[in-house]
Design a protein around this nucleic acid. Sequence first.
DNA 1: TCGGATGTCTAGCGGTGCTAGGATCGATTC
DNA 2: GAATCGATCCTAGCACCGCTAGACATCCGA
Lengths: 192, 192
Amino acid sequence: MSVKERKDRERAARERLIVAAARELAEQQGWDAVTTRQLAERIEYSQPVLYSHFRGKREIIGAVALEGAAELAAAVRAATAGVDGPRERVAALARAYLDFAERNPAVYDAIFQLDGGLAYAQEDTPEPLKDAFAALMETLSEVAGNGIDPGLFTELFWASLHGLATLTRTGRLLDEYAEPRVELLVDRLAMV
Amino acid sequence: MSVKERKDRERAARERLIVAAARELAEQQGWDAVTTRQLAERIEYSQPVLYSHFRGKREIIGAVALEGAAELAAAVRAATAGVDGPRERVAALARAYLDFAERNPAVYDAIFQLDGGLAYAQEDTPEPLKDAFAALMETLSEVAGNGIDPGLFTELFWASLHGLATLTRTGRLLDEYAEPRVELLVDRLAMV
DNA sequence: TCGGATGTCTAGCGGTGCTAGGATCGATTC
DNA sequence: GAATCGATCCTAGCACCGCTAGACATCCGA
């Protein structure tokens, strides 16, 4: 059985290699440049190999999305962990979220813009996605306010962050307002 | 010169036909289905004709976006026109905006998600885009609050609406929270 | 050592956005 | 009214895309 185990290990390693290559290529040249041919060349295999790991390009995007969601959750938790006071925690969360989106635009797109064939807001939603939402809710439910469902509040706050992230990155908002926008968002939405 | 004028008229009519066909096809089957071949068949011309009107597919998307932005501005103004009280006006604006996004998903994407080769938040931003932002600001600047730049406030409110619109449509938010989300957004952001 | 399964590659399908070059049509001129 | 000439449009094709069938090699277990 040791042979099979070794092969499984090698397969898993190659799968990680594919996801890493897709992510790197997407961040470097955008998702349009992530073609099966480019990807195959980067991992030094032929294109059909990709299809022995994933059903198609969509699933590769989905894999990058799951990896990214886990990182986003970790980033949010790390940013809010040592912060005193609910208001400051929320502000730290907002900055960490927007910072992640800015530093990893392609990954952010994979999670929230592109079709990775993943289910959202359902029972069969993959764990990393649920956990990323949970990471937001941990800090945000403190400031939802009286009688407001924490899930509802988190959805709204998240949507605002998402709007800021996407509109900022596509150049649809003024750069100089970036920081005041976050301040205003936190001041108005969070009940401290 | 009458001949030239007639030809110009015919050209303009055909250009409108192309934009209308692109929009209709996008709403019916999504932007992926809007290929130059499909488009050419719908307008009953060959593909190269498209390129005598637009530099490429991107510019066709841009044309749909401009048309849509004008409609969005009109929809927002119409929805807020006869409403009494700033709070109710803002709520009407929010609902009108989200309603437009839901009813015209492909057009909304053309304006705010896809690359139509348009400039945003700059001097050379096309008039319809500036005007759509102006339409939002007309109602929103009333409730920006003391000492808050109306432009800044409008950007934030708009970003929140945009986040709600996009996340809702891609199934990333719970449907049953749709109305309370709007209520909460207006209650928290608008200073009445 | 050999048979067979497993894995990988080459080649190719139908599609995409876009363009070069020739044919055709129609307005203008004699 | 006929000829010319320019504008207009189409056919055909480029390089690329995601994806797959089938040949081939390679390595494992008997």
